[in-house]
Structures are given as structure tokens and as C-alpha cells.
């Protein structure tokens, strides 16, 4: 008798394994807009979790500020000095801006659209409890104009991108989960801009890894790394972090730079979703290779249109 039950149990285990593999296989691809039952579940939980997360953050912030009281005096001194510097820097910045505009007028160059963006405030309502999904849930969704792949920042810098969108909530994939194809085109602000791709994360030191930097590029520690705005929905000029160390990669063809992220990913309360004003076309029209058909002219026109915009 017990043998029979043992067999049935084994069968159940095997069947559930097969079901698991099929369901995972069906859902493993990137799905920016999930199916409606998922959206309902996500929105409902996002709402209830929002009610709890905010007071919890407030209490945690209270304890943190008690700790801070002891350092206020020192910090105040340093901040005052910084403030004096800040006024000077703003004056310089304004002057440079004016100058820049004048030069642009002289050259008749258009304003670069790459760095234009609007910010949308969103509040964090939950965070994945495990270590394999670096996910945040925010309380804004498709009804608030949020779309997949938008950048998410805090005032300190870039923290991630929108992974999938429900009606009233959205999932944010943090920058620490970068291995899964969420690569960012970035610039090191050296004496001249050095381009590369941030495409890895070093979980031991909590550094981002920027690859495909030209071998002859001169980059040093403490230089800032910002997004380049080339391709995708991420605008130019969002701060990623600063260079910590530079290495030649294994094949001695390019350099790898290790970047300490500027944004603090520990206690996130309010984030900004970046809506880019200029979104480049996601699909590049491919010219039809069949000769003699009527399409080539049309495709050529499209290509030209794409390159001039």
C-alpha cells in the first residue's frame, strides 16, 4: 500500500517538475507588458504595500536621523564650505551656458536633443526579498505614462530601468542586475569623452564594470561616468558613478573600468522615472535584399529620414 503511495508521490513530483520547466520556459523571455491577471495581482499588492512601506521608511529615517545628530556639527562646517564653492560654480556654469549658446548661434548648430528629458516622481512600494531578482516596485504605471525601458534615477544618479509595466505599478530592474542584457552606453568624462558600455556587475566589491573602452583611451581614477544617450531610452548625462580602477581585459584589446555607483541602493524611498523627449527608433529598417522588387526606394527614403532626424 505504502509502495503505491510512494510511486504516486514520485509521479506527482515529476509532473510538477515538468510543469515548472514548461511554465518557466514560456515566461523566461523579457515581457515588458505582462498578462492581465499578473497586472491585477501586481497592482493590488503594490497598493497595499505602498500603505506599509512609507511609514516603515519614515520610522527607519527617524532612527537614522538620531544617529546623524551626533555628526551635525562637523557636517555643517563642511557643507558651508561647499556652499561657498557652489555659488562660484553656479556663476561659472551660467557664464558657460551663455557662452555655449552664443557659440551655437554662431555655428548655427541645433540644440542637442540627446540630453532632454522630463522627470516623473514615483514612490517605492516594495523590494524583492531575494538576491537573484534585483527588483523594485514603484507606484506609477502605464496609466501615468510610464513605459518599459525608461531610466530610473535618484538625485544621486542612475539606479536602474523599468522592466515591466502594469496599469498602476511598475517593476524596476536595478543596475546591480545588469548581467541580464540591461547594458548601458556610457561616457567617462576624461579630458575628452571616452565611450564604453556598462555591462557587468561585480557582486564582491559592488562595482559596475564598463567594457569596450578603447585601449589608447586615457582614463584615471575618480573620473565621473555618465550615460551617453546613444540609443535606447536613456538620455545623456545621467550620473552612473566614478571610476575606481582600470584594467586591460583578458584579450588585451580593450580596457575595463570598474565604477563605484554613485546612487545609494540601500534605502530607496522616492525615485524619478526619466521620460526622454527624443526616442530613437527601436527597429532599424533593414533594406530588402531581394533585387528588382518595388521596395528598395521606399526603404532608402526611410533610412535617409532616420539619419537626418
Amino acid at each position: 500500500m505504502s509502495n503505491f503511495f510512494f510511486k504516486r508521490r514520485l509521479l506527482a513530483l515529476l509532473v510538477s517538475l515538468i510543469v515548472l520547466v514548461t511554465i518557466v520556459g514560456m515566461t523566461v523571455k523579457d515581457r515588458p507588458i505582462p498578462t492581465w491577471p499578473e497586472r491585477i495581482i501586481r497592482d493590488t499588492f503594490a497598493f497595499t504595500e505602498g500603505l506599509i512601506y512609507k511609514p516603515a521608511v519614515a520610522i527607519a529615517g527617524f532612527f537614522e536621523s538620531i544617529q546623524d545628530i551626533y555628526q551635525v556639527f562637523e557636517e555643517n562646517k563642511a557643507l558651508k564650505q561647499n556652499l561657498q564653492q557652489f555659488t562660484q560654480v553656479t556663476a561659472e556654469l551660467n557664464e558657460l551656458k551663455l557662452e555655449n549658446e552664443q557659440f551655437r548661434k554662431l555655428l548655427e548648430a541645433k540644440q542637442s536633443k540627446l540630453s532632454d528629458y522630463q522627470l516623473k516622481l514615483a514612490e517605492v512600494v516594495a523590494r524583492s526579498p531575494d538576491r537573484w531578482n534585483h527588483t523594485l516596485i514603484i507606484d506609477r504605471g502605464a496609466k501615468d505614462g510610464i513605459q518599459p525601458n525608461m531610466a530610473v534615477i535618484t538625485p544621486e544618479g542612475y539606479i536602474g530601468r523599468i522592466q515591466s509595466v502594469s496599469n498602476h505599478s511598475a517593476q524596476v530592474e536595478l543596475v546591480t542586475d545588469i548581467e541580464r542584457g540591461n547594458h548601458i552606453s556610457a561616457i567617462v568624462q576624461s579630458s575628452e569623452p571616452v565611450y564604453g558600455v556598462v555591462e557587468g556587475y561585480d557582486p564582491k566589491n559592488h562595482w559596475l564594470i564598463m567594457r569596450k573602452i578603447p585601449l589608447q583611451a586615457e582614463i584615471a581614477e575618480k573620473q565621473l561616468v555618465v550615460t551617453s544617450g546613444l540609443g535606447g531610452t536613456i538620455p545623456r548625462g545621467l550620473i552612473l558613478g566614478e571610476v575606481v580602477s582600470v584594467k586591460t581585459d583578458e584579450q588585451f584589446l580593450t580596457k575595463d573600468a570598474y565604477i563605484r555607483p554613485n546612487a545609494n541602493l540601500n534605502l530607496l524611498e522616492k525615485v524619478f522615472v526619466v521620460e526622454r523627449s527624443f526616442v530613437p527608433p527601436t527597429e532599424i529598417p533593414i533594406p530588402n535584399s531581394v533585387p528588382g522588387s518595388t521596395t528598395p526606394n521606399g526603404v532608402e527614403g526611410e533610412l535617409q529620414g532616420g539619419s537626418t532626424s
Binding site: 515548472l20 520547466v21 518557466v24 514560456m26 515581457r31 495581482i41 499588492f45 516594495a126 524583492s128 516596485i137
Partner: peptide
């Protein structure tokens, strides 16, 4: 699975 990851099944299992 639904809330925190895109892949359904791992936690359910």
C-alpha cells in the same frame, strides 16, 4: 513570482 520576477514558476515550485 509575479511580483518580483518576470519568470513564473520558480517560487511556486
Amino acid at each position: 513570482d509575479i511580483q518580483y520576477s518576470d519568470v513564473i514558476g520558480v517560487y511556486a515550485f
